[in-house]
């Protein structure tokens, strides 16, 4: 669906490339997470993929066709949800969606879309009166109002409360079940972990690793269990290897003195730092 090979891009007037020889493939129906700190080249990669930057080196194809060769019909195939809200503030939410839907050949009904993200009662309210979270939800539904095959989402849960964040994540999963391909850029490692089939870590314009969150956790975790005893402040650690034969551990279970047991699985955050030596913030 999306294929990127040895892609590099240098902005005019800059000596250093913003992205350096990156390569990755995204399959149809996949949710691909693109993770990295600000300035790592995520936005540049996205801009190339949605044809805002054409003078790149290497190759970036969508449906087998080089991105720079696509005409405006590309935007019937892809949808873009930007990181920051971008709407006509003096128009209502409904008027905004009605306005944009007219550019597409097919599109979903604006009121149905607004209802999906809990904005049906605010449909006739001016967007200028919306909170940031409401504007982000409007951004989100606009990105797939025309039933695109590929959806680029940049921080789709930014500024949302947990309830609305959950709604957005559920819709993303629903879109995946409809065989949509989703390119997700986020700082929210928890979201990436929950949603993505694979994630790519990007730092200083280079891709450091691409794998599924599950595989990354298996690879980079310490494979220990952390045990808290009822009468002790400090935890005890046991290696997962041979745990069933670990007499000390089995003794604790038999004695019933346990308070909690956790497998010490590394979070994506920790893995990111471990792999790249940088934090996401």
């Amino acid at each position: 669906m999306i294929s990127v090979n040895n892609l590099s891009y240098t902005y005019a007037g800059s000596i250093n490339p913003a992205i350096k020889n990156i390569s990755f493939q995204i399959e149809k129906g996949e949710i691909f997470g693109f993770l990295g700190p600000s300035g790592s080249g995520k936005s540049t990669t996205q801009k190339i993929l949605y044809k805002l930057l054409n003078d790149y080196e290497g190759s970036a194809t969508i449906d087998g066709k080089e991105v720079k060769s696509w005409d405006k019909t590309l935007y019937e195939k892809i949808g873009v949800g930007f990181e920051l809200p971008n709407h006509y503030l003096k128009l209502t939410a409904l008027e905004n969606l009605e306005f944009f839907r007219n550019f597409y050949q097919n599109s979903q009904k604006p009121l149905d879309l607004l209802a999906k993200v809990g904005l049906e009662n605010d449909a006739r309210k001016k967007v200028g009166e919306f909170s940031k979270g409401m504007k982000m939800r409007l951004n989100f539904v606009r990105s797939f109002m025309h039933n695109p095959e590929i959806i680029f989402l940049d921080e789709p849960t930014s500024g949302l409360d947990p309830v609305n964040g959950r709604i957005i994540k559920d819709i993303i999963k629903e879109l995946q079940s409809e065989d949509k391909t989703i390119f997700l850029t986020t700082h929210q490692m928890h979201d990436a972990d929950e949603l993505c089939n694979r994630v790519a870590f990007m730092v200083d314009g280079a891709l450091k690793v691409i794998d599924s969150p599950k595989q990354l956790k298996l690879k980079y975790s310490h494979h220990n269990v952390e045990v808290f005893m009822k009468d002790q402040q400090d935890p005890l650690y046991f290696s997962m290897e041979g745990l069933g034969q670990n007499e000390a551990f089995l003794q604790l279970i038999r004695n019933g003195e346990l308070s909690t047991i956790h497998s010490k699985e590394a979070s994506l955050d920790e893995i990111f730092i471990q792999v790249t030596g940088k934090s996401l913030t």
Binding site: V80, F82, Y88, L89, F103, R142
Partner: peptide, 17 residues
């Protein structure tokens, strides 16, 4: 207004020249 509200950014990814 369209510049301020970043709407031009959206227009650029619409199937309109």
């Amino acid at each position: 207004d369209e510049k301020d509200e970043s709407v031009l950014q959206v227009i650029r990814v619409m199937p309109i020249s």
